[in-house]
Design a protein around this nucleic acid. Structure first.
Length: 680
DNA sequence: GGGGGCCTGCTCA
DNA sequence: TTCCATGAGCAGGCCCCC
């Protein structure tokens, strides 16, 4: 090992445990780093988290080793070639240097903690952290002297500083103060870029020119303005680009500022001795890789090892590293940032209780949908994130044919993704929606609805029209599934109304005359339930959607609806002969004790409505398959195909090979995320 | 066979 | 006993489709 710190010392194993103390924050200069590392190490040792961190560290070491091996494989000719490439690239990048703009980065000092101290002056001068025993959001400067910092678990912080005071997070309060600071920023740059509640970039070129003031004076005035308006201090950095301005704002923290002149020599001098970890975009892992594989620890080293960087990293990564070495950064006014995804995730005590997991999933689906609705967004890619009890993070995604426009849709698809992972013990579930539609939809856009809602509700005029645009490929399969579900549901009237547990009121408040309020099934009064499930009410659905389903049936053969006006549509309406139907009916699933499947014995509680439905479909498909095999009925075969959930078909044909799980100890990826793709 | 979409895993703030 | 939440981007690899 080139670096003793990385290698560690057998008698001081905490030296190689970098999890918490990865980068000194402002106000932590005098901290006894080794003592902090030892305490953190001892308190973490043996935990699942610790084991996972060790696994990650080991993976990182593997990557570093691979990079080293690749370095040694480079011939003299290779090195010479890549050095030429690097020199040319450096010249090209240098030509893009823009020293015409003046950027200011403003960063509030220990923002959350400072706001809390304003609210409660008794906290002044005492070590305090905003957060909880499980996690700290920020710590004031008194606490930082003990090594307490953001993203540190509270119980470790208390060990480091026993008199530490914990204050719970109050985002509303911080948002109010943030708004006040932004009113000040606005004066200097109406187009300032807020990167978080407590940080912003301002292009002060025009205001400096217009008022004939030096950037230093503007920075002082702005900081004074923020203090007068809020009573909070902030720090500022001024430089020719945003990358440098951000670094500068950290130099004289707290309540200070640093100005880097718009001069190439000044920039190069400033950047040359700067540790790479100070650069935004270079984190713990990149720092270790650059340092341990290439011996790069300062920005100057980036240029000195430019040939190696060009040889072993992709073009974009190498460009980034070389830009850093030159002190280049963004100087333009950025394009209007458009959100690309929206997500929600929750952590809880690790559990494999499936009821709990599905409940969590439903909550998340509701919350995420509410957020999407608030911003008028709808996307078609849904990603499920899971963190296992062993802290392994997995994501599973699916892109749908149609945009997601209801919480039930989110839940329905997320459930499929989750189901594929069960059984599993997890401590976090997250949901993300991405692939947004260009134009936003209104709070209640009836033009697009999920097919399930569509079947139940009809279109905005109260008519029931099959939207042909929604009936392509996969969507058709979805429709077939839902139609089949619908038919089997009505076949068993006691199940009807339980199919869509999460149908939400706003979708039903759009003036549809023929809507049956199935969403109430969870909190339904007995009388209401009976009325809802009465043949009359089912008849209303059957009649009102008869046209759609018949229309659909004409396009797709089975299934079709009974046109006779019978109140209860049965499976016999499918184009399957009576013998098959009766066979299926005989196999109808009973939930023993309202819990256990009578066919296979699997246990599914009554509130797993979709799961139960899918389970019934599975047995139905199974039966149909058996029948089809014995009778060689092409119609039945088609039905059988249709009744296999689309996700399963897709999984078979398209699913990527699964990497062995980390748990199994077989996970040994060798590629680094930004290395060249053609390396061997 | 190659382009490009899709998905996962990972990184960073 | 206890180790976050959220957003964004990218690389790599698989696979569909032209």
């Amino acid at each position: 090992m080139e670096n003793g710190e990385t290698a560690g010392d057998a008698s001081r194993p905490w030296q190689s445990y970098h999890t918490v103390y990865t980068n000194a924050k402002a106000g932590m200069d005098g901290v006894d780093k080794e003592k902090v590392q030892r305490i953190v190490y001892e308190m973490s040792k043996g935990s699942k988290y610790f084991e996972n961190e060790e696994r990650k560290e080991s993976y990182m070491r593997q990557k570093i080793e691979n990079m080293r091996v690749q370095c040694t494989k480079l011939s003299t000719a290779d090195i010479s070639h890549h050095q030429k490439v690097a020199d040319r690239r450096i010249a090209e990048l240098e030509a893009t240097r823009d020293l015409s703009r003046i950027w200011l980065h403003v960063d509030m000092d220990a923002f959350y903690a400072a706001v809390e101290t304003l609210s409660n002056p008794a906290l002044k001068g005492k070590p305090m952290a905003v957060g909880s025993m499980s996690m700290i959001s920020t710590a004031n400067y008194e606490a930082r002297r003990y090594g307490v910092r953001a993203a540190m678990p509270g119980f470790i912080a208390r060990k480091l500083c026993p008199e530490l005071i914990f204050v719970p997070v109050d985002f509303l309060k911080y948002t109010r103060y943030s708004t006040l600071t932004r009113e000040v920023f606005q004066v200097y740059d109406p187009n300032f870029i807020a990167t978080s509640l407590d940080e912003a970039y301002l292009d002060i070129t025009e205001v400096c020119k217009g008022r004939s003031l030096a950037s230093e004076e503007i920075a002082e005035e702005l900081r004074r303005g923020v203090y007068e308006k809020t009573g909070l201090t902030c720090s500022a950095g001024v430089a020719p680009n945003r990358l440098l301005a951000k670094i500068c704002s950290d130099i004289n923290k707290p309540n200070g500022q640093f100005v880097l002149p718009n001069d190439q020599m000044a920039v190069m001098t400033f950047i040359s001795s700067l540790p790479i970890r100070k650069i935004g975009g270079i984190g713990k892992v990149t720092e270790h890789i650059l340092r341990d594989a290439f011996g790069i620890s300062t920005c100057k080293d980036m240029l000195e090892k430019s040939g190696l960087l060009c040889a072993l990293f992709s073009r974009s990564s190498a460009d980034f590293f070389l830009s850093v070495g030159l002190g280049l950064g963004k100087t333009d006014a950025p394009q209007l940032q458009t959100r690309k995804s929206m997500s929600n995730e929750r952590t809880f005590s690790a559990t494999d209780n499936q009821t709990f997991l599905y409940e969590k999933l439903a909550e998340l689906a509701e919350m995420l949908y509410a957020d999407l609705k608030k911003e008028g967004l709808c996307g078609k890619t849904l990603t499920l994130k899971l963190k296992t009890a062993a802290f392994e993070v997995r994501t599973r995604a699916m892109t749908l044919q149609n945009y997601i426009l209801s919480s039930e849709d989110i839940f329905k698809h997320a459930s499929k993704l989750l189901k594929a992972e069960l059984p599993i013990s997890i401590r976090l579930i997250g949901l993300r929606v991405s692939h947004f539609r260009e134009e936003k939809f209104g709070p209640s856009d009836p033009a697009q609805k999920s097919i399930t809602n569509f079947i139940l509700q009809g279109d905005a005029s109260g008519n029931n029209v099959v939207d042909h645009s929604c009936l392509e490929s996969n969507a058709v399969d979805d429709f077939m599934m839902d139609a089949a579900n619908y038919l089997t549901c009505t076949h068993n009237t006691s199940d009807y109304g339980c199919k869509y547990p999460l149908d939400i009121p706003q979708l039903l408040d759009s003036g549809y005359d023929n809507v049956v309020h199935v969403e109430k099934n969870n909190g339904l009064l007995d009388g209401e339930y009976e009325e809802m499930n009465s043949p009359d009410s089912i008849g209303r659905i059957s009649e009102s959607h008869e046209t759609d389903i018949r229309h659909f049936a004409e396009m797709n053969s089975p299934p079709s609806c009974n046109k006779s006006g019978d109140n209860v549509t049965t499976v016999s309406n499918l184009e399957v002969d009576d013998a098959v139907t009766s066979s299926i009916q005989q196999e109808e699933i009973l939930w023993v004790d309202d819990y256990k499947c009578s066919v296979c014995g699997i246990e599914l509680p009554p509130w797993f409505v979709d799961e139960r439905q899918e389970h019934s479909d599975f047995h139905l498909a199974e039966r149909l398959q058996e029948t089809a095999e014995s009778r060689s009925s092409s119609t039945i075969h088609m039905m059988k195909q249709r009744l296999i959930p689309r996700g399963k078909l897709q999984n078979q044909s398209r699913r990527k090979k699964q990497k062995p799980s980390l748990d199994q100890g077989k996970y040994l990826p060798i590629d680094i995320f930004f290395t060249k793709s053609n390396q061997n």
